[in-house]
């Protein structure tokens, strides 16, 4: 009970910090925080696909790219961002559904490479189809959205716009992982054969997991475009997909807060380690390998284990106390 009270207080403090903190930050600080929001949304999507449903995807960066291009093209042509965002989500939903089909046939590393191949193909299309994507020159002058009648050109206003989207998604994500679908995803990850024998339509849920995860990648991309106000192919090369995967793993795949934490580390680390100049990615990669040796379920996995151990210790101490009290009454 005590622990959940602690969790509530901690979440309130974080929420308050996210609401009030950016007022005191520089434009660059707000930009970094907005980037954290964008990456969190993409990582939430991947956490659904990988962390909950257990399907490896190295294509999340490509979906972010699709979302960013769709949103950039539409908003440049005068469409409002929410419409562009829904369109991005829908396009990525369909693409993600189709990418799920290979997952019905193959698992693990095969799937990792198929999705990697998809991400590489997407990059080639972004680069080569100049008539729509602008090729290597990219698309510039992407407008910031309006919220009702207010323009969000300033860094603070746009940050709140992103935060609002994240809030909605975090609510939906919370509901989803507790819904029958979320349970079905877990069953799929833990033991697909048993899930099937319990009457769960594993085929459908694999496709659903891919589709929803990818759609969130599209939403993240559609915020990325107005945030950076410029999209170009290298931003969505294969290493973005890799980085997103590492975010989910580092934070703790299959944990609700995993993607938030993983994205925070990935976005802040380059800032903290700026003094190391080119070496920060090396250090990050080294840290990931070390983490995988210690705890394959990420940082939250370590925390989870610590809490469980503590609970077990407390419970066994209580059991021992009652047992000795019982012995005493017998005598």
């Amino acid at each position: 009970m005590k622990l959940s009270a602690f969790a509530i207080v901690a979440s309130l403090v974080v929420a308050l910090g996210l609401l009030v903190g950016p007022i005191f930050l520089s434009d660059y600080g707000r930009y970094i925080l907005s980037m954290w929001i964008v990456m969190s949304i993409a990582a939430i999507g991947l956490n659904l696909t990988l962390g909950y449903a257990g399907q490896v995807s190295l294509a999340q960066g490509a979906f972010m790219g699709v979302g960013a291009y769709v949103s950039a093209l539409m908003t440049i042509h005068g469409w409002p961002l929410p419409v562009a965002m829904l369109t991005s989500a829908l396009v990525c939903l369909v693409l993600g559904w189709m990418l799920g089909y290979p997952a019905l046939r193959v698992q693990h590393h095969y799937l990792a490479f198929v999705t990697l191949a998809f991400a590489s193909l997407a990059f080639l299309i972004f680069r080569n189809e100049e008539w729509i994507t602008g090729g290597v020159d990219g698309l510039a002058n992407i407008p910031r959205p309006y919220f009702l009648w207010m323009a969000t050109d300033g860094s603070l206003a746009f940050y709140y716009y992103c935060l609002g989207v994240l809030g909605l998604i975090a609510l939906g994500y919370y509901g989803l992982v507790r819904s029958p679908w979320g349970r079905a995803f877990l069953a799929l990850r833990e033991n697909p054969v048993r899930a099937m024998s319990l009457g769960i339509d594993t085929r459908r849920y694999i496709l659903v997991a891919f589709a929803i995860g990818s759609a969130l990648g599209g939403v993240a991309g559609s915020l990325f475009a107005p945030l950076v106000q410029f999209v170009e192919p290298p931003a969505f090369a294969v290493d973005l997909s890799l980085k997103l995967l590492l975010m989910v793993i580092v934070g703790g795949s299959g944990f609700y807060f995993g993607p938030f934490l993983g994205a925070l580390i990935a976005v802040l680390l380059p800032e903290w380690l700026r003094f190391t100049q080119g070496y920060y990615l090396m250090l990050y990669a080294f840290f990931v390998m070390l983490l995988l040796v210690i705890s394959p379920s990420g940082i939250l996995g370590i925390a989870d284990k610590w809490i469980t151990d503590r609970k077990t210790r407390v419970a066994s101490a209580a059991r021992a106390a009652t047992a000795s009290a019982f012995e005493e009454t017998k005598q």
Binding site: V56, H108, H109, L242, M282, A285, F286, V288, M289, L292
Partner: peptide, 22 residues
């Protein structure tokens, strides 16, 4: 890492790839 399964090892390989390239 092998005792944790195929997937963590695959991900460690990706991290190793970044490490070596960088």
């Amino acid at each position: 890492i092998r005792k944790h399964g195929v997937l963590p090892l695959a991900i460690a390989g990706m991290a190793l790839s970044i490490f070596m390239q960088e």
